[in-house]
Design a protein around this nucleic acid. Structure first.
Lengths: 336, 336
DNA sequence: ATACGCCATGAAAACGTTTACGTTGCCGCG
DNA sequence: CGCGGCAACGTAAACGTTTTCATGGCGTAT
């Protein structure tokens, strides 16, 4: 009653197990007619090769692991979608693991993947160089996503936060805004600090003499709201607000609305991420669109390449996924 | 240079492989001191059992598969999160597969999971009874999520669409609305039709004589917008709109706003799902909150139970996850 | 006509683990 | 003192597949 094995197929087709294996895999070294007979037998018996047995002998699992810090929200949904799509295209399965909120849990998760995967996609705040050296088998292909890791040991992929921020600042400057406030993200967050840096650089190079004014924040809507309130007290009043992410921009907008300040007439507001909600707030939010799915997809591509022919990818390879400006009403640009 | 095997550990600790296995697993039938020695050797050699070899002999993979139609949007993000959490709690790995947009692709994905998983979480529009009988090994524990399948062969879990819709209608009735329009979802969609049914039933039982007026829709924002335009032509004008999901409600609101109709003063609007955006549209949307993560978590629980002791769960077990009313401004209720 | 080589096929080893079974030594009881 | 039983440990089979090697048959070239 148990599932049919390769032996059953061999008996059914009156050949040896070796021929069955050959016929069902490459198909080389076996006559067309025997191959046909074997296929029919396999179909009749509903034969599906036992994955574990194959892994054991082949040393390939045809599976990649994705270790993520969390699964909460649209970001990870998109990320997984991109990964899954690319993995499927390569015929790879996807083993996900997440919600390891301390380094120990992450280590456990990492070890548990050992031997189950051919490669690893890793995004973790706990993934510093020591951690990796400690818990990663040295020969397992690995691609890091959005980590702050600078070492050249692993491949890494990240969002072009810097370029995105520059685009936004250039946009604001082109609209005539000069006194620009930047609402920061959580301290220590790599994305946030890169966005801030890009903002500073763009302002310094295109409009020197206009320092960027910063306000604290932590990516939460509430922190954006607080920043908005602080904003109200500033004299002279800023022209524009660039929040390190959309949710803070939305919170900030709420604070300004409550105070009766017109957006974008009196103050322009823009964010970063292009969350789905950005289109629906009033006024719709000018922001930077990040192709998260593409981040996952490219990471998967890079990993697949490493798996298929090891050594083909230089150890320290870095790639960035592009970020695009999406102009909506909140920045005060003339919108069609 | 390759990874250490159990034999290496055995040699290192000067015992047989059997003792190593015993020490590292149950720990029974082995002295405390030998066990200690073995553990040290294993640690020294960084030994991690080869998953495939273990699967082969044990017939257990400690992995469950999740077959989903898509990964797009917040719904699936939450679903996976719930599943992952529950799986982790049981020490199970999670293999996800999605984006199979026709039945053939789904079948391929399903077969590919064969032998890699101890159980299956399945959500697929293509999963009719025949399909399952065809592609599922009969002895693989399986839990269906949100399928329209009526057969008693498999366990199933779904959202309490019916109860949610009733809650909403009762809410609308309590506010004095009587002429209620229901915007339908895609034809054939189970969630949509259950919501409509609940709406009809509640109206029939609490306010007989008030027929529910339906407008076509397909869950998209655009279709909600179109429904809103049709709504404007109705005489007498309806009191309230109940859209089968939030996005349509939002589209409908846009149509009414353009026509200068006040929401909720002239027409109340409400949706279903409580997407994150629902709080941010103006006016904020009254809707039904569905605990998606809980859906995934409970499905995983049920599956885990089936895996741990087969036969413990009756084949046709059904469960529903609760849906709750979230009152915001769009329905015209007095909001604190 | 003989030899050579190629091609289809079969036999068997190997992958790393668990586990049923056998063996040893020790202790307690008759 | 002998015998049975038990606990610790080793030996070996088994899981299902791929792959190397051996074997035989047949066609072709010399």
């Amino acid at each position: 009653m148990s599932a049919a094995t390769i032996k059953d197929v061999a008996r059914e087709a009156k050949v040896s197990v070796a021929s069955v294996s050959r016929a069902l895999n490459g198909g080389r070294g076996v006559t067309a007619e025997t191959s046909q007979r074997i296929r029919e037998a396999a179909l009749r018996l509903r034969y599906v090769p036992h994955a574990a047995a194959r892994m054991l002998i082949t040393r390939r699992t045809n599976t990649v692991g994705a270790l993520l810090p969390d699964l909460y929200g649209e970001f990870f949904s998109e990320l997984i979608r991109g990964i899954d799509l690319a993995a499927r295209a390569r015929g790879l399965h996807l083993l996900v693991s997440s919600s390891h909120d301390d380094a120990a849990a992450a280590a456990v998760a990492l070890r548990a993947m050992q031997g189950r995967v051919d490669g690893l996609l890793l995004m973790s705040p706990h993934a510093d160089a020591d951690f990796l050296r400690q818990n990663l088998p040295q020969d397992l292909p690995t691609v890091l996503m959005n980590t702050r890791l600078a070492g050249a040991d692993y491949c890494a992929l990240s969002v072009d936060n810097d370029g995105g921020a520059r685009l936004m600042v250039e946009h604001l400057l082109s609209l005539g805004h000069r006194r620009i406030v930047f609402i920061q993200g959580p301290s220590g967050n790599r994305d946030a600090s890169e966005r801030e840096l890009g903002c500073r650089e763009a302002l310094a190079s295109h409009a020197p003499g206009n320092p960027v004014i910063t306000l604290g924040g932590d990516f939460s809507e509430a922190s954006g709201y607080r920043a908005g309130q602080q904003l109200l007290a500033m004299r002279p009043r800023p022209d524009a607000v660039f929040a390190a992410n959309d949710m803070m921009a939305i919170g900030c907008m709420a604070a300004l609305r409550e105070a009766g300040i017109g957006v974008p007439e009196e103050i322009a507001i823009c964010g970063f991420d292009d969350v789905p909600m950005a289109r629906y707030v009033t006024p719709p939010l000018t922001t930077i669109q990040v192709h998260i799915a593409e981040l996952g997809g490219q990471a998967m591509e890079l990993l697949g390449e490493q798996i298929d022919n090891p050594g083909s990818v230089a150890a320290g390879t870095r790639r960035r996924v592009r970020a695009e400006l999406v102009v909506r009403a909140s920045s005060g640009a003339p919108v069609a």
